[in-house]
Design a protein around this nucleic acid. Structure first.
Lengths: 343, 343
DNA sequence: CCAACACTGGAAAGCGCTCTCCAAGCGCAT
DNA sequence: ATGCGCTTGGAGAGCGCTTTCCAGTGTTGG
């Protein structure tokens, strides 16, 4: 148990018998300070149990050692509470894990910030005020003005997922079209004739890309039209979409789902309908989340290296924090097809 | 695009033609300020695009509007990077979602902080220095000194999961023993004769409680000894544990797993071994995570209201932040059995 | 032997904000 | 008129830290 007031630099200085500035220098390892004093100061620090007040330090250095992870919660209108769904989705966890893998060793903190449509201005203001050194922006609806605002405000920021319109801001993204095309090629190659797809919400840019990538690749193989149902990236919605698809197209023999969770749902629906996978119907998912490996039959899917992407986003961001004039950079990851049992 | 320097209170005051203090009062809604001035100040705020600097404010008010979510990463030694596993686990997401549901409407931020064994002192120091108003502590290994340190330092904190030894600190927890007993009773009631369990790591207090709860309940029903295998809460480990159990006890007809992921793994192993669930072997999991509903057959499990618990933890914490003399409170949630198809 | 020069340590000025304290202004009763 | 209590705005002291600037000291070359 300690006294009410915490020791400050001043206190340490008094104990060590030097000035505040000297203590500050020693603690920050700046300039050549007499080794004797150096030692003296450190022992005074130990003795007083001094811990620097990061708030005060940040106020003057304009550096906080914190990165904001900005999550859009524009979807909250749903009756199903958005938060539980979003945070429980493997997507969120993988991103956090990827970010942490680079932030943690550097001692950088992560601050979670949810922001609705009216929270944009305060957010940018706080960021400019140095609440965080930079921001990683997640899962933004298309045409959200935030990236533009961030760029204008010259706040170091990196998007995960490309911005809807070209904006001078760094981002990491996956070549979603290519990934979907991989799935299409595989399905066609297996000899599937009647294909269908389970898409994600149209507001999500990645969904749209996966859609068009799949369609375009199939068109190249001569499939003009592909029946489609839209889900919301949950397993449940995938299951329902699959049932609807099956009802409309009983002959279908190949399905591509825009994420693994929906693919898993599709697997269930197919099972219930007595279809064998992959013999009767081949299924390909997207993401290569842990659930894909765990499923039976194990899910063939498109690998989305989200952890790597998030880690890279963190690195890009930190680079820009250290050097604000660093060029804007965008990295597009190439997906790969992970063939397991369902296709 | 704005000028380099951000407007400060001073600037607003100059524009409005009043003093800094007056602007501060208006912005914080304090005291009776002449309505005319009030309006004048707000228009000056608009005009300058002023945003309060939270850092500076926190420095003097000693309030940050931020709660730290402390995650122990003592398990990192694993070759399998701890982070990806932990953050991807539904556990983490459910907690974050639960916390956010309370914090978000109040405008409180969440700061993620991972802390290893040697990070304890700095963490407590930062907390005392007002880096965050309080802390929610997650998934601590048994006998971690952190709760005690926090209590001694009088830092508002709430644990999720009870402390290993009695310490004057608030916490929310689940009656794990009761939950496990519920599972045991159900299994016995179904007529299972040869029971087994898949436990979690022994360092996790909740694991231990589920173990003893299950054992004790079975003992009441006359089962003296229960074969057991230990997993690490992943689906994979559950699958392996199940195989081992099956090899050792081919006759077994009922299994309790300490979490859903491991139960799901067990389901896979049972399937591979040609056992029907629940006809040949009944399975009960723990947590009622989303995967439990989604599994086929749908998993009978013990419901762990983690979101509610996290939300309550947030409320307890905020109460203590507002009133540091508020009594320490502990809330134990009662689990319920969710009967689905596997038992 | 003295000037020029590193080098070190201290004083003090802020970073942007809140909040206590005080002076000024006003209405009212004496 | 004068005194009193009340409201209201401003001046200024800090929150704990970094960092610039300067004085003092020891060191070297001319």
């Amino acid at each position: 148990m300690q006294s009410e007031r915490l020791p400050t630099l001043e206190d340490v200085a008094r104990v060590a018998g030097v000035s505040r500035s000297t203590v500050s220098r020693v603690i920050n390892g700046i300039r050549n300070v007499d080794p004797q004093l150096h030692e003296l100061v450190w022992s005074a620090v130990d003795q007083t149990g001094y811990v620097p007040n990061l708030l005060a330090r940040s106020l003057v250095t304009r550096r906080t050692g914190t990165i904001a992870l900005v999550v859009s919660d524009s979807e909250t209108h749903d009756d199903d509470p958005f938060m539980s769904r979003f945070f429980s989705d493997p997507y969120f966890g993988r991103v956090v894990g990827g970010l942490m893998s680079v932030l943690r060793p550097l001692g950088v903190q992560l601050a979670l910030r949810m922001v609705g449509p009216d929270g944009h201005k305060p957010l940018v203001g706080d960021l400019r005020n140095g609440q965080a050194d930079g921001a990683v922006i997640l899962s933004l609806p298309a045409n959200d003005p935030l990236p533009g605002m961030l760029a204008d405000a010259r706040v170091p920021a990196v998007l995960i997922g490309r911005p809807a319109s070209p904006i001078p801001i760094s981002y990491v993204d996956l070549a979603n079209e290519t990934g979907a095309a991989l799935a299409a090629d595989r399905l066609v190659e297996r000899g599937c004739r009647q294909l269908a797809m389970i898409s994600g919400p149209a507001e999500v840019p990645a969904s749209v890309d996966r859609d068009s990538g799949f369609r375009r690749a199939l068109a190249r193989h001569g499939h003009a039209w592909v029946p489609q149902r839209i889900g919301n990236f949950t397993q449940d919605s995938g299951e329902q979409a699959m049932r609807a698809l099956l009802a409309a197209q009983p002959q279908l023999d190949g399905v591509f789902a825009a994420n693994d969770l929906m693919a898993l749902g599709a697997l269930l629906a197919l099972r219930d309908a007595g279809r064998r996978v992959p013999e009767d119907v081949a299924v390909i998912g997207f993401d290569d989340s842990s659930a894909a490996v765990a499923a039976r039959p194990a899910l063939t899917t498109v690998r989305h290296p989200l952890e790597d992407m998030a880690a890279e986003a963190a690195r890009l961001l930190l680079a820009r924090v250290d050097n604000p004039t660093a060029p804007v950079a965008s990295i597009i990851y190439e997906p790969t097809l992970v063939v397991r049992q369902t296709a």
